[in-house]
């Protein structure tokens, strides 16, 4: 393959992982931004989305595209409902105390993880891709499904942004974020907003998981990676800043794919160095540098 083709391939792979990561991390960031809750169980909502996608696909006969379309709608709703319930039953009772909610969501992590193990078992669960075509680029063919994932993620992020900035629901969410006591003094049902935001954050993770599951099988332990990556992304981007989250997801996604795919071609003599592990090390290094030199993140405001 030519250098240009390899670059394009690495770019596409980077975009695909960045777009799924951006969706997941935006969910985490949204919940922190509005509720000041660090949701340690976020990765488990991702896992639940994936496992439920397998379950939905196994229930619905016929073409994989149909089952997948159903999963894309139903799984985020179910996961969102579970999250809303967790908010009302647990987080609300803790009065959203930051330390207490961290401990509580750690507990939630184990409940969801072990629950998934009990119900769905320890095996990896495959979901067939809904579309099966390849895009022919100069020098290589590329999964049409991955391109569809990129497009879907961009549309979803655009939709999220429109909801937050252009709708009444978004206005109510932003007002609640700024000052919940005053929001109540103007008729805003803060409890309902919180339940909705927690559901929305979890739903975003679930959508990302449904999108990824035809590429990467569902498994009850799969929540750890998206959680860690989401944390990296929101630390780099600035917790609560959606713009920063998207930019940081692009950065991490690109580093993750460029290093193992593209760099060995550019520096063939050192090819063996550019492993996925190096990519992870680089990403961690970026997180560390941001924490040291700009703890509020690239786009975050200084803590009040």
């Amino acid at each position: 393959m030519q250098l240009g083709s390899i670059f394009l391939l690495a770019l596409l792979e980077g975009l695909a992982s960045a777009s799924v990561l951006a969706l997941t991390a935006c969910g985490l960031s949204l919940v922190f931004g509005i509720m000041r809750v660090v949701n340690v169980a976020h990765g488990e909502f991702f896992m639940l989305g994936a496992v439920l996608a397998w379950f939905t696909a196994s229930l619905i006969p016929g073409p994989p595209a149909l089952a997948f379309a159903v999963a894309l709608v139903v799984c985020p709703l179910i996961v969102g409902a579970i999250a809303a319930l967790a908010d009302m039953l647990v987080l609300k009772r803790l009065n959203y105390e930051p330390e207490a909610t961290i401990v509580a969501t750690i507990g939630l992590l184990y409940i969801l993880q072990q629950g998934a193990l009990t119900v769905f078992g320890p095996n990896a669960l495959p979901v067939p891709a809904p579309v099966d075509f390849r895009f022919q680029f100069p020098g290589f063919g590329y999964s049409g499904y991955k391109i569809a994932v990129i497009v879907a993620a961009v549309l979803l992020l655009l939709g999220l942004w429109l909801i937050l900035t252009r709708t009444r629901i978004g206005l109510v969410m932003r007002a609640t974020q700024i000052d919940r006591a005053t929001a109540r003094a103007f008729g805003i049902n803060v409890d309902r907003v919180y339940a909705g935001v927690f559901a929305m954050g979890a739903g975003l993770a679930a959508i990302a998981a449904v999108l990824i599951v035809p590429i990467q099988q569902a498994h009850y332990l799969m929540g750890a990676d998206p959680l860690l990556l989401s944390f990296s992304v929101v630390i780099i981007g600035g917790l609560g800043s959606l713009r920063g989250t998207v930019v940081a997801a692009l950065l991490i996604g690109m580093v993750d794919q460029m290093i193992p795919i593209f760099m060995p071609v550019v520096f063939p003599a050192y090819g063996a160095w550019f492993t996925p592990t190096l990519a992870k090390i680089m990403a961690t290094l970026v997180v560390a540098l941001v924490l040291v030199f700009r703890p509020q993140g690239l786009f975050g405001k200084r803590a009040a």
Binding site: L171, R174, A175, I178, I188
Partner: peptide, 17 residues
């Protein structure tokens, strides 16, 4: 106690709602 990060129009919108 205005919603400082919201515009004048948005603060008024909250009141109207």
């Amino acid at each position: 106690r205005l919603f400082g990060e919201l515009t004048v129009a948005e603060n008024i919108e909250i009141g109207l709602m």
